[in-house]
């Protein structure tokens, strides 16, 4: 794996509001080089806003975003290393309803110093995309393919993808994860993928970042996070006894059968194993729901 010359992308105390609505609240985040990060959060949690602020495409009310210690705002050296491949929508830029794919990609080639046109052409062929088509004429899946193409061909040291899997069928999604891992194996560049499709992508993310209500809830290695969560189920009395001393995130009860989603150290789990309860692991998606469900979750 080749290493790239990027540094740490840091956000400190970032606050951003749209009018009275506080979207990002005193947010701190570090993106270290050479990893694949997954950014997950509910709709309206502020993911796209965060990504826009990290890449200086959106303003912040207070706080700072730096790359290699330098602020990213209006800093060409930093901007050259960042690629933010947005989720394409028919109404993406004001008044661009007739923008062609070709125009979009040609602009990318003009602005990103590392743009790999051969790679872009290969992907165009593989995705069977017609560059002459207008973006608003593409299907949701095809728009995702353009997002992916742009991100990969940019060869930017820090590449951000916003909802690259939206609208793709399962075969194309698998292909996307493959392409991402292949590129990562070859270049070792930093990827930050924001997605709704959590469980499929979980094995691809080395680290996961959970954004909830404008703050970073978790930012740590995926497997480390998952290892902390379990379901404990059985007779309600046993379950209650075992769960004492563990952080209970949610409970579900059917008669005397009770299931609790808990977070705790392995040591405390030992005691649970001795009792007559079932202990099951939680996958990333279930961990996410337990952490961000806010009362409307089920185990």
């Amino acid at each position: 794996m080749t290493t790239t010359m990027d540094g740490v992308l840091s956000a400190r105390g970032v606050c951003k509001s749209y009018g009275a609505l506080e979207v990002l609240k005193d947010l701190d985040l570090d993106i270290l080089p050479g990893k694949i990060y997954g950014l997950i959060g509910r709709n309206g949690a502020g993911k796209t806003t965060l990504l826009g602020v990290l890449t200086a495409q959106n303003t912040l009310d207070s706080g700072s975003v730096t790359l290699d210690g330098e602020p990213v705002w209006e800093n060409q050296r930093a901007l050259d290393k960042l690629c933010f491949s947005r989720e394409l929508q028919a109404s993406l830029f004001t008044g661009q309803n007739t923008l062609k794919v070709r125009h979009y990609l040609r602009s990318a080639a003009a602005f990103w110093p590392g743009w790999d046109q051969a790679y872009a052409d290969r992907l165009l062929r593989e995705f069977r995309l017609d560059p002459k088509k207008k973006i608003c004429q593409l299907s949701k899946g095809q728009m995702s393919m353009v997002t992916i193409l742009l991100a990969l061909a940019s060869r930017a040291p820090i590449t951000i993808l916003d909802e690259p899997a939206a609208g793709l069928d399962v075969v194309m999604r698998e292909r996307f994860y493959q392409l991402l891992l292949e590129d990562y194996a070859e270049t070792g560049r930093t990827f930050l993928v924001s997605t709704h499709i959590i469980e499929e992508a979980a094995s691809v993310f080395e680290d996961v970042i959970i954004l909830d209500e404008g703050k970073i809830l978790e930012s740590c290695p995926t497997e480390e996070l998952i290892a902390q969560f379990h379901y404990i189920s059985g007779h309600e009395d046993e379950v209650d006894r075992v769960c004492r001393g563990l952080q209970v995130l949610s409970t579900h009860q059917m008669g005397r059968h009770k299931t609790c989603a808990v977070r705790g150290e392995m040591v405390k789990l030992r005691d649970a194993e001795a009792a007559d309860v079932d202990i099951a692991p939680m996958n990333l998606q279930k961990v996410f729901v337990a952490l961000c469900g806010h009362g409307d979750e089920q185990p």
Binding site: M1, E174, A185, S203, E223
Partner: peptide
């Protein structure tokens, strides 16, 4: 690690672990 990552569509760092 890269071969394992490719085979199972997982992050190479996980395979390395």
């Amino acid at each position: 690690t890269n071969e394992l990552a490719r085979a199972y569509n997982i992050n190479p760092a996980t395979a390395a672990k």
